[in-house]
Design a protein around this nucleic acid. Sequence first.
RNA 1: GGUCGCGUGGCCGAGUGGCUAGGCACAGCUCUGCAAAAGCUGCUACUGCGGUUCGAAUCCGCACGCGACCUCCA
Length: 496
Amino acid sequence: MAEVKKGPLFITNTLTRRKEEFIPLNPPHVGLYVCGPTVYSDVHLGNVRSFITFDILYRWLSHLGYNVRYVRNITDVGHLVDDVDAGEDKIAKRARLEQLEPMEIVQKYTNGFHDVMRLFNLRNPNIEPTATAHLIDQIGMVERIVKNGYAYEANGSVYFDVPKYAEKFAYGELSGRKIDELLSNTRDTEGMEEKRSPLDFAIWKKADPHHLMKWPSPWSEGFPGWHLECSAMSTKYLGQTFDIHGGGMDLKFPHHECEIAQSVAADGHAPVRYWMHGNMLTVNGRKMAKSEGNGFTPEELLTGNHKLLEKGYSAMTVRFFMLQCHYASTLDFSNAAMQAAEKGLERMMKAVALLDSLKPVPGEVADVASLEERCYAAMNDDMNTPVMIAELFEGVRIINSVNDGNMAMDAQGIARLKGLFHSMLFDVLGIQSTIGATNGANDETALDGLVKEFIRMRAEAKAKKDFATGDAIRDRLVALGILLKDTKEGTTWERA
RNA sequence: GGUCGCGUGGCCGAGUGGCUAGGCACAGCUCUGCAAAAGCUGCUACUGCGGUUCGAAUCCGCACGCGACCUCCA
C-alpha cells in the first residue's frame, strides 16, 4: 500500500499575516487556547461557527498525532455592558431581570452552551477554566504588571499603561494599529477620567456598591479586567509561551492585542507563537451578532421557527455547510445555501452507507491512495476543509461507480476507502451519520402527509362501499399508534 | 475618518501567474414499466479601467461596490 505523506501542516498566523509551517514548541505536545463564551445569554450560530473552526483544528492536530492540551475558557465574570448601563455588571443585570443569582445565570447558560456544543458534535476541551475560579491567578498577574511598572492604580482600579508599554514593545502588532492613529481616534469610555491615556485599559476595576460580582484585592473590592482572564489562565495551564491561540476575528482588537501586552508586561514573553482567527458568519452580508439582532439560536434553527428560516435544518447540515467554506473567509447564511448543503450531505452520507455493502469489482483499481493524499494536502494547507470536502465528493463518485459496477476496486481498496471516510469525514470533520436522523419538524411533516394519504385511500374504499378495506386501514393504523377520527368536516388523526 | 480584508459562473463557495475545484440548480444522455437514485455530458466564471508579463481571474495602480475592527458587543 502506498505511503501517504501526512505533513507538514501550514497555518495562517495572523500575527505575521502569512501561512507558516506549524512547529510546536515541545513536540509532540501542543498547547491550544481558544476564547470561550460569556455565559450571560444563549450562544447563536455565529458563535458556533467560531467554535467549530477550532474544533476542527483540535481534531486535525490530534489526527496528526500531536498530544494537544486544548483549553477553552468560560467567561463567568460579568463585565461592563455599555455606556447606557455604565458601571453595571453584565451578568448582574441579567440576574436582576430574571430574579436569579448571578451564578445561577452562569450555570444556566453554561449548561446551554454545553448542550449546543454536544448538538454540533464538538469535542470537549481538556480544560475548561472559569474566570471566577481563577481570581487569585488574575490578581497575581495584575501584581506582576504593576511591579514591572506597566500599570498604575487610580481610585481602586488598576490600568494598563499603554504608552509606557509602547515605548519598549510593539503594541498593536497583531491588529496592525499604531499608537498615534489610535490616539487620534478615541471615544469616551467608562473610567476615562482615571486613565492617564485614553488607550489605557482596566486590568482591575473597582466595583460600584450595587455590583453583585466582586472580590477583594489589594486595590479594592472589584473584578478583573476584560482581557485579563485569558492571559492568566492560558499562562497557568499552557505556560508563559504556548503554541496556538484562537478566537473570532472580532477579538483581534482590542482583546487579543491586550492579552499580548499583559503577558509581555507581566512575564516578559510574547505569549503566543501562532495566532489564528476565524471569520464571521454573516446574514444578508452583515455580521451575525447579538447587537444586530440577526442571530438565531440552535433551537430556532432546528425547528425553523424564526423569520429568517424557511425550514428547520439539522445540526449536521449546519456543520457541513460551515465546513464548505474556509474558516478565514466570511460566510453568508442563506436558506438556499443551507438547502444545497443539506442535499450534498445527504448524497455523501448515502454513499458512505453503501461502503458496507460494496462488492469488489475486478479490473484496474481506482486510486484511493492519491485521494487520501489529497485530503491530507488540503487539511495541511491551513485547514482547507472545503477542498477536503471536494475530494470526499470525488470519493462519493467512486463509491457510486463501483456500486454500479462501472468502476473497478478490490477489497483492499474498499477497506481503505472506508477507513478514509471514517477518519476524514467522521473523525476530522466531525460529521455524524444522519441516515434516518432528519430533524423532528421534518419528521412530523412527513408523518402527517403519510397519515393523510392513508385517510384518502380509506375514503376511496368507503366510497366504493369497500368497508372491509376501510376498516382494515383504520385498525392497522391504531395498532401503530395512530387514531383516526371521522368528523363532520372529514377525517382527522392523532396519536393514540 | 483610520486599519485590515473582500468582490469568482443561476446560487453557495475553493483556488491560482499558463493545467476541470466542489456542492446545489438547470439541460441532454445511460439505466429504467414510470419515477427516484446513480453515472456520463453540457452550461467553463473570475467588479471596471489601466499597467507588468511570452501569458493574469491570479502581481501592481486607480475607480466603484461591500464587510469587519477602531478599548471593554469574549
